[in-house]
């Protein structure tokens, strides 16, 4: 029996996605966590992970020009469709390489090296909310989508080994490679948004992405009291797109205060109304994702 994968996404950053994922994790039983926001992983800041296993991640290859052999013919700059080859005073250099290999293949002087690139590190950890898999991408590196795929796979393996029912994924913002990698094939997506023009706009894009990959989505409006009118519009839009709507959450200082204390909300504020509300949302989301 493969575990259910529930991914928490947000389109826009800063909506409270990671704080909520960490809070859900404290209530979720038989669950493995995966932090797929590999560009800017934050889940570990709330769950004090102790690393038990780690490995490096190679994201493909990188081209680099050997100055000694380069004849400055400029063919590489002409062929590169990614604008990664630049010329300064007749010297050619490559930065921000996409790893396609075109320049390496066609360099008439065979002056371009093609080396495997190490672009990140993955970790399996024990945390205060159970096993979590997380990663660190080398800043500025390519292939964050690939690293997100790897984190998901490792989390699935952990879940299978432990007989866990759920993999709870903290997804990345946006709708690009890493978001696609976190979403494809997931059982359900919980999309956390906020009542701002950007929140509304980005929500539409992320819901389109979920429907593009046939993943059922549920929308949660955080900080709803900042703009009740826009909250209504967001929820109507979500329903119009065939999504279910979770309970709203108010603008609450507890989010930042829990971050400052490096704890998930239910552990920093046990028994609080907010923690109770989050627990209800988690239970409802879990049964919705099973239906």
């Amino acid at each position: 029996m493969s575990p259910k994968e529930i991914v928490v996404l947000s389109g826009k950053g800063g909506t409270g996605k990671t704080s909520l994922t960490a809070a859900f994790a404290t209530f979720a039983k038989k669950t493995v966590l995966a932090d797929c926001d590999v560009d800017a992983a934050n889940l570990h800041l709330l769950l004090t992970p102790r690393v038990t296993e780690t490995g490096t991640f190679g994201g493909g290859h990188e081209a680099s020009i050997r100055e000694a052999d380069c004849t400055s013919c400029g063919l590489c700059a002409e062929l590169c469709r990614f604008g990664s080859v630049s010329e300064i005073d007749g010297w050619f250099g490559i930065s921000n390489c996409e790893g396609c290999g075109v320049c390496v293949e066609f360099c008439p002087a065979k002056a371009i090296d093609w080396k495997p690139s190490v672009t990140g590190t993955w970790m399996v950890s024990d945390s205060i909310a159970g096993t979590m898999v997380h990663a660190r991408l080398r800043p500025g590196a390519e292939n964050s989508g690939k690293l997100a795929s790897l984190v998901r796979k490792l989390a699935r393996d952990q879940a299978q080994a432990q007989g866990a029912d759920i993999v709870l994924i903290d997804g990345p913002p946006g709708i690009g490679c890493p978001a696609i990698a976190s979403l494809t094939g997931a059982s359900a997506a919980l999309v956390v948004t906020e009542p701002t023009p950007s929140g509304l706009h980005d929500l539409e894009r992320i819901l389109d992405l979920a429907s593009h990959f046939s993943v059922p989505a549920r929308v949660l409006v955080n900080k709803w009291d900042l703009n009740p009118e826009l909250t209504e519009r967001i929820e109507t839009l979500a329903q119009g797109k065939g999504c279910s709507v979770a309970q709203r959450l108010p603008y609450a200082k507890e989010f930042t205060q829990s971050q400052m204390a490096a704890l998930p909300i239910p552990l920093r504020f046990p028994g609080s109304e907010l923690a109770g509300r989050i627990e209800e949302i988690w239970k409802e989301t879990q049964s919705w994702s099973m239906s």
């Binding site: 950053g13 800063g14 990671t18 590999v38 560009d39 800017a40 934050n42 800041l45 990614f82 930065s95 921000n96 996409e98 991408l137 800043p139 500025g140 590196a141 390519e142 292939n143 964050s144 990345p172 913002p173 946006g174 690009g176 890493p178 930042t256 971050q259 400052m260 490096a262």
Partner: peptide, 26 residues
């Protein structure tokens, strides 16, 4: 946002980068 390839391909083209942050641990 983030620090991956999209970020790099934009910042790469600039003369100076202004980073906007908020005073939280994240």
């Amino acid at each position: 946002p983030g620090t991956a390839c999209s970020f790099a391909s934009c910042v790469h083209q600039a003369d100076h980068c202004v980073l906007v942050t908020d005073p939280t641990p994240f």
